[in-house]
Simulated assay, not measured.
Amino acid sequence: MRRKHPKLTRNLWIAVWLLVAVIQSWDFFREKPTAPKAEPDGFFVELKNARLVDDPGNDGDSFKIAHDGGEHVLRLYFVDCPEKRQYALVEGRLKDQAGYFGGLSIPQILNAGAQAKAFTENLLKEEDFTIQTRWERVYDSERTYAVVLFDDGEDLAIKLVEAGLCRIHTKGTMMPDGQHEFDFEKRLREAEREAKAEKRGAWGIPKRAPPKPKK
């Protein structure tokens, strides 16, 4: 039986360890991309010249944007648009959303979700907008909360409420202009009362007829 040469085996091990050391050194010193850091409360970062990225995950209140060579998934403060599709994890949410608008059916609330998605996408594609964010994470997801402002001075959250395509239901914040969270929510409630009175969006969808009593 041929025996392995001890010197050759030792040299192979030395070569392996040297290769590992070189790789580790390269990884340590190479330039790595840095994730955006959350800003202290009250301090917003302004993102101009962002654009909407077509993505299957986009919906009325959450969407992907491209800015300065990177991509971010944003989630609006204050509002929650109906889901656009049905799956196990959102069953409870769909029922809550349907109930919020006066007792819609699941297909009806899903249709409202599709309308909200189209509404937001059309605005972000056709209008100039600015994003204000503190890079505050939505739970442990990759999404970050944000405020979207258009050149007409209006906020996307308000536009969605005015269109009757969302409920006022999620985390709020002090606004970039210093407006208190509760004052902004008061504006949203006023806009919602008007949308409801004029039966806009989901408020105007005919409700399910109550079941007829059995004879």
Rank of each mutant, 00 (worst) to 15 (best):
G102I: 07
G102W: 07
G113Q: 09
P107Y: 07
E83N: 01
E126M: 03
Q108K: 07
P107R: 06
A112Y: 03
R93H: 12
R75G: 12
E127S: 04
A114K: 14
I106V: 13
Q97S: 15
K117F: 10
G99A: 15
K84A: 13
A118D: 09
L123Q: 06
A116S: 07
F119T: 00
L104Q: 10
Q97M: 15
G102K: 08
Y100D: 06
R75N: 13
V90L: 09
L74K: 11
Q115W: 10
G92V: 08
A116P: 04
G92C: 08
A98E: 01
F101S: 05
G103I: 10
C81Q: 06
L110G: 07
D96S: 15
V79R: 01
N122W: 05
V79H: 00
L104E: 08
I106P: 03
F119R: 00
K125C: 01
Q97Y: 10
K95M: 10
Q108C: 03
Q108A: 11
P82N: 06
F129L: 01
P82H: 05
V73T: 15
E91A: 11
V90M: 09
Q86T: 02
L104A: 09
R93T: 12
L76K: 02
E126W: 00
A88Q: 11
A98D: 09
P107T: 02
D96Q: 15
N111M: 12
Q97C: 07
F78I: 04
N122H: 11
T120H: 06
Y87S: 08
L124C: 03
V73E: 15
S105W: 11
P107S: 07
L76D: 02
T120F: 03
K117M: 14
E83L: 02
Y100A: 11
N111P: 03
C81G: 04
E126S: 14
A116K: 01
L76A: 03
D80G: 07
